[in-house]
Design a protein around this nucleic acid. Structure first.
Lengths: 142, 142
DNA sequence: CTGAAAATTGCGAATCATTCGCAAAAAATA
DNA sequence: TATTTTTTGCGAATGATTCGCAATTTTCAG
């Protein structure tokens, strides 16, 4: 494994949250090129060292996020207000996926689950009423 | 509601699978511009008529897919080989999300769950052994 | 070790999905 | 029906990601 790949792998292994290619690119500044970061992420994902999911948020647009597969598969929450990831713990939907799998007659090889909303710190009265109000206004319209 | 938005809404309401902006754009050909399709999709999502998730696949790259919110929330499977969507049925992870929500102290307002793998038709012996073999080779390497 | 042969990088130029600016056209209102 | 407010078309940005290709590293056989 080359220096670039080792470096990217270590970043993912040590990260306590999903990293975007750009996050990794910034952390690898001076070590390797951004194109190499992308190629390394692909390499790591194809070889079972990492996995990714794509998330769209107002602050960062649509980006693909990577996490190490060193630790057991888990799921993430993304705050719509402060745009931070919060760990939702280990995957608990294995059984449900199994039954969906057999009912639909498919072979599931990967899955992605993430939730979005407001984190503990961001759901102060202001933010909540603000959002609820916004929603009320919008849903009402034709 | 304008003609363009009505048209896009009807397409989503009648679709039996998630549609990408490009899918919608093609179906709206001659009716309205692609930029308007994007704007209409945003309008529909913001106003509770539709919801979206982002999926990356080898055939179509990273695209955002939209589904109507007319029918109850459901989840989808995407075949890695024929790249078709298959309905996995109504959402069954409400309770799990609720517990994750309280454990993490967050307020979940949306979630996305999808699975990928091989659909019934695509997991013939050839394709499966091919994939398994590919994986064995890759996972082994350093 | 050591010198190919094979695989990976850097860099800059594409791509691709998506968004924007702005004047023209359509819809909501008075 | 005139007027104000929104939306649309079109073409030009953007932003993330990918590609081509020569230069550089790695890997490997000897």
């Amino acid at each position: 494994m080359t220096k670039a790949r080792k470096g990217v792998k270590r970043l993912l292994d040590e990260a306590e949250k999903p990293l975007s290619a750009l996050d990794v690119g910034t952390l690898m500044e001076g070590v390797c090129d951004l194109a190499t970061v992308y190629r390394s992420l692909h390499y790591l994902e194809e070889n079972g060292f990492a996995e990714s999911f794509v998330l769209h948020c107002s602050a960062h647009g649509t980006e693909r996020y990577y996490v190490s597969r060193k630790a057991p598969h888990r799921h993430w929450f993304h705050c719509e207000r402060c745009h931070r990831f919060i760990d939702l713990g280990a995957c608990r939907i294995g059984a449900i996926l199994k039954s969906m799998e057999s009912e639909a007659g498919v072979l599931i090889r990967h899955h992605a689950l993430y939730a979005t909303g407001l984190c503990e710190g961001c759901r102060g009265e202001d933010s909540v009423s603000e959002l609820v109000e916004k929603e009320r206004g919008e849903e009402g319209r034709e």
